[in-house]
Design a protein around this nucleic acid. Structure first.
Lengths: 339, 339
DNA sequence: TTCTTCGATGTATGCGCATACATCGCCTTT
DNA sequence: AAAGGCGATGTATGCGCATACATCGAAGAA
């Protein structure tokens, strides 16, 4: 026996296909009796709705697309999970695209999404060089950008002020008395939120009357291994920094390990600060001082915002800047007792 | 101007729709000249292929579905990333379904996948109570199960021998001289791979001539916070264990923190072992002794296997058991110097 | 030369559903 | 009692593509 279609159900229930369609999508349009009859036939014959056909007919798939650099970042995963939690329960599956910081791949994934007529796109940032194309696409279909602010851009965003947060953390380190502060970040040239963090850092340093030293600015993709590598490179410098500000916790925790291996005490000999406040941050040793990012909140809000846009409610622009805060734990202190 | 369809392209290029379709999917069927002509028109008019229509016509979507308990687990993320890496580059997007250990949700997500006529499903385990339904579905469409072995089941799997690995780790702790070993796992009743790990533990304990003590067996979902909680509960026992085997690293690292807070030295006062070998394991303090799980390999192999199945190559059953190994780091030692 | 084969392309149909529009009673309204 | 309104349902068309089958011409076989 072949899979029953809406037509089979209609025939068996003695109604029209339109009525079956209504029974599935908008039951309250039907007489209770009719509804029961149709639902009975549906259940009895194991009818499975064909969403692909529905999508074609409606000219719009009810799938959402999410773009993230890599699922390897636990903090971004928080955003992903929160988002999915909201939209899945409303029948919207999510296709997750890992761009792996590769602009070509990002574009290719984007094309695939367009081919599938996804009903909405959510970006946890995007490659800087693809911004024009992606922003243009944002005009055509519901899109939301997360994890950064796009002020005055006319685009929907739910983000954090990376520059301000980074500036604040750098000021904090400066305030502790550090003169030689390094910055380790993930590809500032390619990712705007990291670039903003770098700007916050350099601004704070410059305000202090000093220029940021190029050898103190390192570029590494956000993995533990890279944090380890970066710290080793910094420690090999003729004049190593007394504090290291890592633009994400993965790098910071890797750096912590490198310090331990080098026999350096944190924070007595060297201070380390992170960005994100991943769950692991408070379980590291010493517990990591970092910037808390409301990743989960952004995911939840993005999900709700997207649902609203799809339902044509609340058609205004979504533009929200969420607060961050410095979480002082145990990896930063005044300099000068070691090294 | 409305979006051009395959028909518009056909007309503009002076060929039939079939030829355009071939130009898109199987270019070598066409005369080079024809191909160039069609591709020119496609490019010039900004034609975008409509995958939804294609899927309907072909009666099969080229999207894959992946079921995981939660993206919050970094080790499962490794599998996800590796899998996506393989299939995305072949044009297969992946819909990721987080079941959150909720059987109802799992079933609902499964229904959504069926409605979308996904071409293949990959499961990082599934809820035990849904196994019959899911295994039955596995007969209808390409499916692969990961992270556990399904010997003699007739299903495709790429997994690890959880029971044996767990048995081995417990033996290791026993060999160190521990008599009081606790087990903390994530919902063994609901997830087969955790059940197997529990079995490995109890088997090893029983072989020692002792029965596993119920108060030493704790059930917690795999989060850092829960590991912390579990350890505190164990430490509150009249007779706390001298070693704690956590069925996943998240729990183990949380437990580590709880010990530190309680003023207990690891491994001098208490031993802790994990399972997974997440990246963070070697960055914890002390570095975590754990069972290495080839998560990435499973993802890669699953991706390749799925592609093969979809291309009808290699139609045999995929049944592979990958090796695990105990990674001895710094959290386990002989008992008896503290507590 | 005639028949066959095969490569290149065209024709025509249907995939399963949504929905604009039409229909048909029945209940209000005046 | 006639007109209008509205709730419940049916009719009919098309969404954009894949593909089975048909066609046609040229090259090779006999």
């Amino acid at each position: 026996m072949t899979k029953p279609t809406i037509q089979d159900i209609a025939r068996l229930a003695g109604v029209s296909t339109a009525t079956v369609s209504r029974a599935i999508h908008d039951p309250k349009l039907l007489l209770p009796e009719t509804l029961r009859k149709v639902q009975g036939v549906i259940k009895r014959h194991g009818y499975i709705y064909n969403a692909v056909a529905g999508d074609l007919s409606r000219r719009k798939s009810s799938v959402l697309g999410l773009f993230i650099p890599t699922a390897e970042s636990p903090k971004i995963s928080s955003t992903v999970i929160a988002l999915q939690d909201v939209v899945n329960s409303h029948g919207f599956p999510v296709i997750i695209n890992n761009t792996l910081f590769d602009p070509r791949l990002e574009l290719d994934l984007l094309r695939q999404c367009r081919e599938r007529s996804l009903s909405g796109l959510i970006f946890v940032g995007c490659m800087t060089e693809n911004e024009p194309a992606i922003f243009a696409l944002g005009e055509e279909m519901p899109s939301i950008f997360l994890w950064d602010v796009l002020e005055g851009s006319g685009h929907n965003y739910i983000g954090i002020d990376n520059l301000a947060a980074s500036y604040k953390m750098t000021r904090y380190l400066l305030g502790l008395g550090h003169k030689r502060i390094a910055f380790v970040g993930a590809l500032p040239d390619k990712v705007s939120r990291v670039r903003r963090r770098l700007e916050g850092y350099t601004r704070a340093i410059r305000e202090q009357g000093e220029a940021a030293r190029p050898e103190y600015i390192l570029e590494f993709a956000p993995t533990l291994e890279n944090g380890h590598l970066a710290m080793r490179r910094l420690l090999d410098l003729a004049q190593p920094p007394t504090a290291v500000f890592c633009a994400c916790d993965m790098l910071a925790i890797g750096a912590l390990t490198a310090c331990r291996e080098a026999g350096l005490r944190v924070p007595q000999d060297i201070s380390i600060a992170g960005f994100d406040d991943v769950d692991f941050a408070s379980h590291a040793w010493p517990p990591l001082t970092t910037v808390r990012v409301p990743a989960q909140e952004m995911g939840t809000m993005a999900g709700r915002g997207m649902l609203d846009m799809l339902r044509k409610k609340n058609s205004g622009l979504i533009q929200q800047t969420l607060p961050t805060s410095i979480i002082v734990r145990g990896t930063c202190a005044e300099p000068g007792r070691g090294v």
